[in-house]
Design a protein around this nucleic acid. Structure first.
Length: 275
DNA sequence: CTCCAGGGATCAG
DNA sequence: CTGATCCATGGA
């Protein structure tokens, strides 16, 4: 089916700005995307977005995934009004949107992400999906469900080269399948309350928790502070001197308010791309 | 060889 | 409270 995309939607930038790991760029310029247990082929030409899905799947899955019902024109106006220095980052990648991905997938993916490069995270998530996720056609595999990972031992995770993160994964999965960590219930909580729940898991710190909240729950009032964002914030607001994490987070809230999660993504992609 | 990667736990002051 | 060190592993 075809969708009308506006100037605030750029498939390439959405997929490649660092928030998603389960996509492949095709020869045609389109993308094969796996999310929410489904596989999608998407192509964009100008304002025309072509998707190989039913209207039902569009309505039930992909519309939410692409955050279509948020007015990014307004988001960008508000952010620019709050902080004019964000403008060059926004105009460099004006088509970024925050994807709404599966909470459990984000939980596992970002526990894995610590101290790893983005390409390696992508490889590792692919390997885990192929090993334990259900086949969904065309050789694609869904990200594994909690029950599918519950039988995986720490030893097996180590064989997949997850290194010191293996026990963290086992602990997180155990908490989910036993109901000790109720991912569903975090939807209704404030970011601060939801973060508290996530921080109880070993291997989840502030940064990983905030990535889960932003990309898995669409909570835009968080600011994942990773090495790239520390560079960006230091350069922008602290004159090259090394500020504390607390100072950087306070500055992010001051400058970007409840839209700091979205601001973070413009800053992140811009910084990775060398702006 | 060294250094670093979308960090966090632990321990020393 | 802040800062240093260690943690596996692969790529530059």
């Amino acid at each position: 089916m075809n969708i009308q995309a506006d100037e605030h939607f750029d498939l390439k930038d959405i997929m490649e700005c660092g928030q998603a790991f389960r996509y492949k760029r095709l020869e045609s310029g389109g993308y094969a995307i796996i999310a929410h247990g489904k596989r999608l082929i998407a192509k964009q030409k100008g304002h025309r977005l072509t998707l190989d899905c039913s209207e039902k799947d569009w309505a039930e899955v992909w519309r939410g995934y692409f955050d279509v019902d948020r007015d990014y024109g307004r988001v960008k106006e508000e952010l620019t009004a709050m902080e004019p220095r964000l403008a060059p980052y926004i105009s460099k990648k004006p088509g970024i949107r925050i994807l709404k991905q599966e909470p459990f997938e984000m939980l596992i993916t970002f526990i894995l992400s610590q101290n790893k490069s983005m390409v390696h995270i992508k490889q590792l998530v692919a390997i885990i999906s192929e090993a334990y996720g259900s086949e969904i056609g065309e050789g694609g595999h869904a990200f594994p469900l909690p029950e599918q990972l519950a039988r995986v031992s720490e030893e097996s995770f180590r064989e997949l080269k997850t290194g010191f993160r293996a026990p963290y994964l086992v602990d997180a999965i155990h908490r989910v399948v036993t109901g000790q960590l109720d991912l569903e219930s975090l939807t209704m909580l404030s970011a601060d309350k939801a973060r508290e729940e996530l921080l109880a898991v070993k291997g989840i710190g502030r940064k990983v928790a905030d990535c889960i909240l932003l990309f898995g729950y669409g909570k835009m009032d968080v600011f994942p502070l990773d090495v790239w964002m520390k560079r960006a914030m230091t350069k922008l607001y602290f004159d090259g001197k090394k500020p504390s994490d607390k100072a950087m987070l306070a500055k992010a809230r001051e400058k970007f308010g409840d839209l700091q999660g979205i601001a973070q993504q413009y800053l992140f992609y811009g910084t990775v791309e060398g702006l």
